[in-house]
């Protein structure tokens, strides 16, 4: 429960902060990719990469969590895309063969239809989700932020000792 409150507080503070919409949108777009790729060594690599590249981590987490749920519905489509790319496109075969015979790369399970299909779906979603997220954050900040701040629930949360503690902790950390 505490984690959920912390997560929501983070999202809330992120949307209402001065962080640039593009930085938030980049995090969301990367989170979409991360959420779609099934758990594997490759997904672990993508996760670690998200810590090193300067994405907004709260945005990455939010998008990854949402798209992890969505991915179960997209699995059949991802499977078909992966199967097509891996078996039906002769021009790509030499690329897959090269990768398949390289050290460590096979452990990424790139040759699995679901992993490949989900990764490609994630890549395809990267740019549209980036622009949609930029638009969304801008819309929120210009039209809804003030209204949302006046919600009683928000005021109660903001007045809670946990939020104050969390906000001060964030200030100290400089995030």
């Amino acid at each position: 429960m505490l984690l959920l409150i912390k997560f929501l507080a983070n999202i809330f503070s992120l949307l209402n902060s001065e962080v640039s919409p593009k930085q938030i949108a980049a995090g969301i777009a990367y989170g979409v990719l991360l959420g779609l790729v099934p758990a594997s060594l490759f997904a672990t690599f993508l996760l670690l990469l998200s810590f090193i590249i300067n994405f907004n981590l709260a945005a990455v987490g939010l998008a990854a969590a949402i798209f992890k749920l969505v991915s179960y519905e997209l699995d059949p489509l991802a499977n078909r895309i992966g199967y097509h790319l891996l078996t039906q496109v002769p021009s790509l075969t030499h690329v897959w063969t090269k990768l398949y015979n390289m050290p460590l790369v096979p452990y990424s399970r790139f040759n699995n239809t679901l992993v490949m299909g989900s990764f490609v779906l994630g890549l395809l979603a990267l740019i549209p989700s980036f622009f949609l997220a930029v638009l969304g954050v801008k819309l929120y900040r210009t039209h809804f932020r003030d209204k949302v701040l006046k919600f009683k629930v928000v005021q109660v949360v903001k007045a809670s000792s946990f939020y104050k503690y969390y906000a001060s902790y964030k200030d100290i950390r400089g995030q």
């Binding site: 499977n79 078996t87 990768l99 015979n101 040759n111 699995n112 239809t113 679901l114």
Partner: peptide, 20 residues
């Protein structure tokens, strides 16, 4: 022959070289 159509967890497609 081509591998069977993928199932829930997907299928692994092998790409060995001739000498592999």
């Amino acid at each position: 022959s081509l591998p069977p159509r993928p199932r829930i967890k997907g299928v692994d497609i092998a790409f060995p070289t001739m000498a592999a």
